[in-house]
């Protein structure tokens, strides 16, 4: 009797300690790291990182991919048939349950991608992204990826997010266009949008030539602003070159002004042609 008791206790103890180990192991891998591993697995074909996705609950907002883990699996299958892909994550940052990754893909052709993943209990439950073709020769001479990657000023996250929210409202949605120098540095504005030159002047020139052609760049709605320290992502809807698009803009902020910008612009698929019904936005 006594012996049985001891064995039972031991078993319970070992179960408990096992659980603790697992928890520790999970804690050790950050959400950012999980996202990096998962994206890299698209290239390597490694199976383990797929376990970071909640298999029972994964809401897909990429309109070309079917909902759920099955949709993601189907894309990987097609990609393997097409000879595989390449994935180079450039910068990753997080905001609460959200992780944002800026990535150079060769994924059915070379693309710049900004992905957003939402986590619940350590697992990915939702995904949004915005993809754009890579341009070889850019107006600024910068690529769509190079530039700063160091995350700092963690104490300024909220202030920087507020700055970008107001930048969207006042400049891109047009409430106070003359305030542009309150938001964007007049000394340095490193531009990674392939069609626009460096500096505030470059941005002004690009916007003016679009408007003169009768095709002003229109921001209609800002959906979400996410950031960590000096990096802030803004997701918006609008019209660019006579197409309905999603704008994903990443801004780097230094001393309260935007000094660097990367973006991707992707056409929004009409609902009837989308592979899922989750919508491109719906944060």
């Amino acid at each position: 009797m006594r012996r049985i008791f001891i064995i039972t206790v031991l078993t319970i103890v070992s179960i408990v300690s096992c659980e603790a180990d697992n928890k520790e192991a999970n804690m050790a891998i950050s959400n950012k790291q999980k996202v990096s591993e998962l994206l890299k697995a698209i290239e390597t074909g490694a199976g383990e990182p797929v376990a970071y996705i909640n298999a029972n609950n994964y809401t897909q907002h990429n309109q070309a991919i079917a909902d759920g883990l099955a949709g993601f699996g189907a894309v990987l299958g097609t990609l393997n048939e097409a000879g595989g892909g390449k994935v180079e994550v450039q910068r990753v940052f997080e905001d609460g349950d959200f992780v944002i990754a800026h990535t150079k893909y060769d994924f059915f052709g070379p693309k710049a991608g900004i992905d957003i993943f939402r986590f619940e209990n350590g697992l990915i439950v939702e995904h949004w992204d915005n993809l754009q073709e890579i341009v070889e020769k850019t107006a600024s001479g910068r690529t769509q990826f190079d530039g700063s990657t160091e995350i700092k000023d963690l104490d300024k996250t909220e202030a920087n997010k507020t700055l970008v929210r107001n930048l969207m409202k006042d400049i891109f949605l047009g409430a106070n266009p003359d305030k542009i120098t309150d938001y964007i540095s007049t000394e340095q504005y490193d531009q990674h949008n392939p069609g626009v030159k460096d500096g505030l002047g470059g941005l002004g020139e690009a916007l003016a030539s679009l408007a003169e052609a009768g095709m002003p760049m229109v921001y209609e709605k800002n959906y979400i602003v996410l950031g960590q320290g000096n990096f802030v992502l803004s997701v918006s809807e609008g019209i660019f070159l006579k197409e309905k698009v999603a704008f994903y803009d990443i801004f780097r902020i230094e001393n309260g002004k935007v000094v660097e910008h990367w973006d991707t612009v992707e056409k929004i698929v009409p609902e009837a042609d989308a592979k899922n019904t989750n919508g491109k936005f719906n944060f």
């Binding site: 052609a213 009768g214 095709m215 002003p216 209609e220 809807e237 006579k242």
Partner: peptide, 19 residues
């Protein structure tokens, strides 16, 4: 090339896409 008619056509296309 760019013309007044083209500008207005572009502008109508842009306006038509708006919410």
């Amino acid at each position: 090339q760019a013309s007044y008619l083209r500008v207005f056509f572009n502008a109508m296309e842009t306006e038509f896409l708006r919410n």
